[in-house]
């Protein structure tokens, strides 16, 4: 009768983000001990697993700014039953998307050629480096996203409320003070 429930498998990653949302996630502090009773981690900076296997929940921080981001995002969408956009950059592109009104070549020229600092080094063109996209996109413009949690970053209490609602099978409801765009 009381067979232990299977733990939910969770993967997390940061695309064009700053890992601030992951840091805020860790700010749930000792509540992480309650969380690991309920979930186990697949691909995540916490486990250092490089590729995502079949998961119940995928959490994406950051928008899509280069070709590798697209591949990682698609891998998550393919493997995760529920995909969550966490933080301002995943939700609307955030700070990286503020380059969107500029021409990509002009940006690269300015950073690597005309401005002091890196000038003279040339625009990086190593095959190892993923090519930047013309524009930075929020993740819902590339794959279907099931849930969104805005914030820069979302506060730890918001992440906790969101995850506990979701794990309990409820649609997460963020009351006043937990829903923030900044």
């Amino acid at each position: 009768m009381n067979a232990p429930k299977r733990k939910l498998r969770v993967a997390t990653t940061s695309l064009a983000g700053c890992f601030g949302c992951h840091m805020s996630f860790l700010d749930i502090d000792e509540r992480i001990l309650q969380l690991v009773e309920l979930v186990e981690f697949d691909r995540s900076p916490i486990t250092d697993i490089k590729h995502c296997g079949p998961c119940d929940l995928g959490i994406i921080e950051g928008g899509v700014c280069n070709a590798e981001n697209v591949h990682v995002l698609r891998e998550f969408r393919k493997n995760c039953k529920i995909l969550v956009a966490m933080g301002a950059c995943a939700v609307n592109g955030g700070l990286p998307a503020q380059r969107n009104h500029l021409d990509l070549r002009d940006i690269l020229e300015e950073v690597y050629h005309t401005e002091p600092g890196l000038s003279g080094g040339g625009i990086p063109n190593d095959p190892e480096l993923p090519l930047p996209l013309d524009k930075v996109h929020p993740i819902h413009e590339v794959v279907k996203v099931d849930y969104f949690l805005p914030g820069c970053p979302p506060p730890a209490d918001a992440i906790w409320k969101f995850l506990t609602d979701l794990i309990a099978g409820r649609t997460p409801v963020m009351g006043h003070g937990l829903l923030h765009y900044d």
Partner: peptide
């Protein structure tokens, strides 16, 4: 982009987004 906007916390568009539960654009 609310995180870099000086009006954040004073902005009616943002406040209505919160009040209406706008989680995504």
């Amino acid at each position: 982009f609310c995180p870099s906007c000086e009006k954040s916390g004073h902005c009616k568009l943002q406040a209505l987004g919160y009040a209406l539960g706008v989680m995504t654009p």
